[in-house]
Nucleic acid binder design. Structure first.
Lengths: 350, 350
DNA sequence: TTGTATGCGTTATCAA
DNA sequence: TTGATAACGCATACAA
């Protein structure tokens, strides 16, 4: 008796639009109109249907909706990033932007070193038929990936450290300017031998931050040997190792700007290993203002970028093409990072 | 005829099961069988259809699938962000468990202090008709929430610090045992005046960890004044404040066990503020093994729980009821935390 | 082994 | 302002 399964299932599962229609004595389409706030509808009819919806606790099935509309309401977040706090802040920002909409967020961490990267992303997008995706750095710097996403008919917004794309496809911070100000601050304190630990080769954020560093020195007419710039990998360990190199120089730098907080924490760690006073014998500036920056001793002076706001903006930008959301089309794409002054910088003791 | 509209639309959108059926000269159902790996199917037919699927890049529409099956493939992660790294590790673990399945993960941060908490969770689950959810601590300790989720016909797995629920509904670490061992380690080093900074009132994890602390002292026959136990809030600042209190005692503790790493970092910070040597004058043990624990100086001895593995197990447990996944029904629910010995503990100098 | 008819819950078309 | 009917893409029951 296969028909047995149906009533049972009906009882256990949620009410559908048919139930509402039947119970309130109207057609499905009318219920649909009520749900979608169509204007041409009799207020009485509307009230009746709304009452029934409230009574039964009816919730439209998004799957069926997606099927009928030929589109869905899923936003993907694609990232490959070691910085947990940034991703979480970004998630928070995106969800804030999606709040009170019917969109939901799907998270997809990927491995940017994997040869199957493109395939992974393609499968993710086409399987779920995503409405759009937000791509986080450093993945966002990959132009081919952005093209792939677009070719799949999927909207996208990239988050980056510079203008990587059209305004409607990017939210960007002004890393270069922010770093220039940070290094200028070191110079104002009297530092001249300022070292720099860069981000990994090929990262746009690393390039921008290094340029900011170089600009600040150039403007002040300061020349430092190329050996004052050491490559890092955005990891704590690479920060430690790079610092070892810098401190082996003679004379060593009196200050170090590390391209992110993880490495800046490594600088502090390496300084301690050598018994150096921070900031007395070595001043440090990081980038990101992750929690770690304020947890170490001394707390790190660092650059903070408004990640949550950028996430919110990215989400709004993505759904901007929706009807009735023309306002979101004017979402800002450029965000200003600021220097947070804490205890890891002072004048050079020498 | 109305069928004219189809080719036009067809060209722009993705191929459907109908296209595959038509192109390979079989019925939809046969294609469906190929997709779902039915056994009763002619190898030649199968090959033909599979070739066509590969050629066209056809991907089944999960929305339609969900509709037809009367269920969907969405797993929710509900949390109230205490700790970015933990949540990200958990996400990673869940996604590992979901890899190569058709399930996807939806993330939902909520505010556990909000009066609309239950309503939020209910809307999330019923709107998306989630297959199941993973609930992270401290939210997972709320029995009423779990009951609500279940009443919505949604599967759930709670992650916790103790056995909060049936084995099929929980993945738990043995916080009490792990802490007991940690404090025993302090005792073995010669400490007798051991302070404890607890987690917030009412948190199961806080209770378990405090019990572990008390058990270790009891077993060693050590009595400490109640004032050696100070309430914290799992935050850095609360760790700093609690440490101030403890260090104001006379005699002060020679070691402090903080119920999480954030607070342990606060202990370290407060010790530095007073110019105390760590570990020389004050030994510290934390809990979580977050990145911060290894970034500060000295790196913190702490308790590590296998969050990624727990996440993976939670995901597998959730989808265990699926056909052909009976193996997953035996997913472990109890996970062992271990003490990670680093540089923040030594014998008391006195 | 394969095909036909039907249903899942929603929206769109077009007529009433 | 409303409703009947046909999609949307896929899966199941049942028949061939």
């Amino acid at each position: 008796m296969p028909s047995q399964s149906k009533p049972a299932k009906r009882a256990a599962s949620k009410p559908t639009i048919n139930d509402i229609a039947r119970l309130s004595g109207v057609s499905k389409k009318t219920v649909s109109r009520v749900i979608n706030r169509a204007d041409s509808i009799n207020p009485q009819t509307r009230a009746k249907v709304e009452a029934m919806i409230a009574e039964t606790g009816y919730v439209p099935n998004p799957q069926a909706r997606a099927l009928a509309l030929g589109r869905n309401f899923l936003i993907g977040l694609i990232h490959d990033n070691p910085n947990a706090q940034m991703i979480l802040n970004m998630q928070q920002g995106i969800l804030e932007g999606l709040r009170d909409t019917e969109f939901e967020m799907l998270v997809r961490p990927v491995d940017r070193t994997s040869p199957a990267l493109f395939e992974d992303v393609e499968r993710f997008i086409s399987r779920q038929r995503l409405f759009g995706v937000v791509i986080l750095p450093p993945l966002s710097e990959n132009d081919k990936l952005a093209k792939l996403v677009e070719s799949l008919g999927c909207r996208y917004v990239r988050m980056g450290s510079a203008e990587l794309d059209d305004p409607q496809h990017i939210v960007a911070s002004n890393d270069r300017d922010a770093v220039r100000e940070a290094v200028q601050y070191l110079i104002e304190q009297g530092h001249r031998r300022i070292g720099h630990i860069t981000g990994p080769n090929g990262f746009r954020s690393a390039i921008e931050r290094q340029k900011g560093y170089e600009e600040a020195l150039a403007r002040a007419g300061i020349k430092v040997p190329q050996s004052m710039v050491v490559a890092g990998e955005y990891t704590f360990d690479s920060g430690v190792r790079a610092t070892e190199k810098l401190l082996d120089m003679s004379p060593p730098p009196t200050a170090i700007f590390a391209a992110n907080d993880e490495m800046a924490a490594g600088v502090l760690f390496a300084a301690r290993l050598r018994g150096l006073q921070v900031p007395g014998q070595l001043s440090i500036i990081g980038f990101d203002d992750t929690p770690i920056a304020s947890r170490v001793w001394p707390p790190l002076t660092t650059v903070r970028w408004p990640i949550v706001a950028m996430g919110r903006s990215a989400a709004l930008k993505l759904i901007a093409s929706e009807a009735g959301r023309a306002d979101a089309a004017e979402e800002p794409w450029r965000f200003v990072s600021t220097l947070i002054r804490r205890g890891s910088v002072t004048s050079p003791s020498a």
